[in-house]
Design a protein around this nucleic acid. Structure first.
Lengths: 189, 189
DNA sequence: ACTGCTATTAGTACCAGGTATTAAGTTCTT
DNA sequence: AAGAACTTAATACCTGGTACTAATAGCAGT
């Protein structure tokens, strides 16, 4: 055997993961085995044929566009009492971090908090006008951030004060005081 | 003729644009014409076969992932003097706005400003620790936001104060005072 | 009504990139 | 040397097409 089966299959998996568009024929050349062997390997590894793989990538992309448009909240909302409190969860993934050091970018944590604060407001139109925020600890790739938002004050002028605190485990990693405008057309978020 | 050719081709184009995964057979049923007619139509309209269409969607998606990972800065940096000042431009597109009212989400403007402030710092590791921000006017779909960042103070303790103001035309839409930490391992952004 | 033209449909051969199955080597091990 | 694991071969068949040829339908103009 040129290269042990297990090793070949490991590499095969990796190769296809990195390039889902590759055909059996090219794989067979790359690994210097017959095309049938490649197909047996794919079977054992439950890797579908190239067209299915491409289709999968493509449909993921369509989903992405939709979910991005739909998700008015960044992170998953797991609790919401309008005009009272809300909680969302965000798992920190590759696209959220600086590639150099795998630390989450500040605006990701801000985005989670901000969209949660906005979602909390029981109104057609809610926009952030002001925020004081503080990042109190680095958040790393793979960590789960739980953001908790709470309405502090409902003012008569249409503004609402919301405070958000985000935790990894029991450590506070982010806190912010937001002022949210509702229904108006003059201010911004 | 059930429906004039031109009209059918217009609808065909539209249908395929909306669902690139649709096969000739289903199209022929939908338009109540033979499969050959659909193929002639596709020819005339230069629409490739379903597999090519899917492949196209899929490869676009891969590009997307790459470009997202690469963009350490949200918006295009057009000027940068390290530890002094920087300017970036962001065109507000569909994915940046609330679908209901086409107003840019707050965290998009924050992201532009934050990543500009971080990029401005001449150091391996730069993280936001604190920010006071204000959204002074709504930004709408299609508008171009120019963010200008300026270093205010370089402290000896490793912190730097940066102020960012973002404009649409000559109107200020966002302003923020950021405190950026450099080189440390304790604080966050 | 016949001609001419476009539009539509049918039919056939062929292709890529597979699946599925059966059978025949090849190694490796013991 | 025998058995098991692994690899290759061969063949039939599938989907969703391309490419090409030919037949047919529908209608307009004269």
């Amino acid at each position: 055997m040129r290269v042990p089966k297990k090793e070949r299959q490991r590499l095969l998996q990796e190769t296809i993961d990195r390039n889902p568009f590759i055909k059996d024929e090219e794989l067979s050349k790359q690994f210097a085995v017959s095309i049938q062997t490649i197909r047996l390997d794919r079977m054992e590894l439950k890797i579908p044929e190239v067209r299915e793989r491409i289709k999968h990538v493509a449909s993921e992309r369509l989903d992405e566009v939709k979910s991005l448009a739909l998700s008015e909240v960044i992170g998953d909302m797991i609790d919401l009492k309008l005009d009272e409190s809300a909680i969302s969860v965000l798992d920190i993934e590759r696209e959220h971090v600086f590639s150099r050091n795998e630390i989450a970018r500040g605006h990701i944590l801000f985005a989670q908090a901000n969209s949660l604060a906005v979602a909390l407001i029981n109104d057609e139109l809610a926009l952030t006008t002001k925020a004081d925020i503080r990042f109190s600890r680095q958040v790393h790739l793979g960590e789960r951030v739980v953001a908790k938002a709470r309405v502090i004050k409902l003012r008569r002028d249409g503004r609402t004060d919301v405070t958000v605190e985000s935790y990894v485990g029991d450590e506070c990693v982010f806190s912010g005081d937001f002022t949210i405008y509702r229904r108006g057309e003059e201010e911004q978020a």
